[in-house]
Amino acid sequence: MIEAVKFWNEPNNKSHWDPEVDPGWIRFAEMVKLASSAVSAEAPGLTRVLGGISPIDAGFIQNLAGQGVLDQVDAVAVHGFPLDWNNWQIDAWPERIAEIEAVTKLPVWVTEVGVSTFGAEEVQEWGLKRTAELLSGRVPRVHWYSLYDLPKAWPATTRHREAEGSSYYRHFYMGLLREDGTPKLAARHFAEYTPEFGICQWFHYEDHRLEDAVRWLKKLGVRKLRTGLSWADSFRPDADAWFDRQMAALDDFDVTVTFCFTPEHRGIQPHHTSAPLVPGEFAEFCARMVRRYVGSTATPVEAVRPLAALA
């Protein structure tokens, strides 16, 4: 069910990890090392990946390497959006990958790459084709972000939200499908790049799109799926029931699951980007999820029941 786990999402992005709470990423390094050890104890063969960095920064990787983090993972990951947010052009993708390869011998995965339709759907259509030309066969994993547009009623995970101007609103137009589930121009081409290309799709707590997403992923020929299990969500009522439903629905895919988001009441600051008060608590969450969904000791998932019965 799970082929790999990732520790956090974009840890060098202020919208996902607060460097003022954790200067130098000292607490982050400790947290990841504890989590990696806990996961290895539960499932020794499971691939462990450092959370995808954004921006792509070789210095950040060197910092974590110096703290021993890279000794505890099997791959590193990068995220890039050169047609929307980065200050480099799309043709620089090979250079960006090479910058990270120069400072680590670990495989480099691209676990988020995408193009918004904020300006025009034709931009995404062209961007998908060009991205495939640049990254196919270049890295072990490519996950396109994303399947669905973000519903306009939901907030995007950024620090300053609407104050970011058009940069913020681009978050809502990253899908191959519109919010209502209808396909955009690029969707008709995506199957040309699967199964080599996977998709990254985040599912919110009790996400109403889950079953339709599974149908679309299969229609597009997707085998590799990246999603997340939120540490913060684990404190919601019936969280395990939702996690079970999500993971059962995704059972036919090779899933890379990202563990992230600090529960407000367990952070040094009451925010999902805060370093936790007790780093070992994140490790305990990771271990529990791996124990639940990986290996012979896993808690049985309710996969024997039809999805309709789980709704």
Rank of each mutant, 00 (worst) to 15 (best):
V49H: 00
Y293H: 07
K105N: 11
K219M: 12
P300T: 02
L106Y: 08
D84Y: 10
P195K: 11
R236G: 03
D254Y: 12
P237S: 04
F7P: 05
A283T: 06
A98R: 15
I100Q: 00
W216D: 03
M247T: 01
D233V: 06
A153C: 13
E122F: 13
V32P: 06
V69L: 04
D149R: 09
S166T: 15
E112A: 04
A4R: 05
A38M: 09
R291V: 06
G221P: 00
V103A: 03
P300I: 08
W8V: 08
F60E: 03
A298G: 09
V73A: 00
R291Q: 12
E30G: 07
P82T: 05
S15D: 11
T256G: 04
F7N: 00
E101L: 05
Y148G: 02
E281G: 03
E264Y: 14
V21C: 01
P279N: 09
W154Y: 14
Y169A: 10
I61L: 10
A58I: 03
K14D: 15
G114H: 04
F253S: 04
D238N: 15
V257F: 08
E42Q: 11
G52I: 05
V21G: 02
W126G: 09
P300V: 10
E211I: 08
G59V: 01
Y148P: 08
A153Y: 15
L128S: 01
G119Y: 14
Y173A: 10
W88C: 07
A38P: 00
K224N: 15
S136D: 09
Y293C: 01
H204S: 12
V214S: 07
C200K: 12
V214I: 09
E211Y: 15
T158E: 08
S40C: 09
M31V: 11
G198F: 06
H204I: 10
K33T: 10
P155S: 10
L217H: 05
I268P: 03
G68L: 07
A38Y: 09
D91I: 13
V32R: 01
K6H: 14
R305T: 07
G66E: 05
V290W: 00
E99G: 10
A153F: 15
D240H: 13
W8L: 11
A75T: 02
R223S: 09
G80F: 07
D22M: 02
V142A: 01
L229M: 10
A213L: 08
L106R: 10
P276L: 06
H208W: 15
A163H: 11
V76H: 04
L150V: 05
H16R: 12
Q67H: 14
A120H: 11
K105Y: 13
S166V: 14
T182D: 07
G119A: 12
L83C: 05
A29S: 12
F81W: 13
L210K: 02
V142H: 05
F282R: 00
V222S: 04
H208T: 13
R215A: 13
S146E: 04
E3L: 14
E133L: 07
Q124V: 09
Y293S: 00
A186V: 06
M1D: 14
G80H: 06
F282Y: 11
S234N: 02
P155K: 13
V49C: 01
E121T: 08
V255D: 02
D22A: 01
V113D: 02
T111P: 03
E10M: 06
A92R: 15
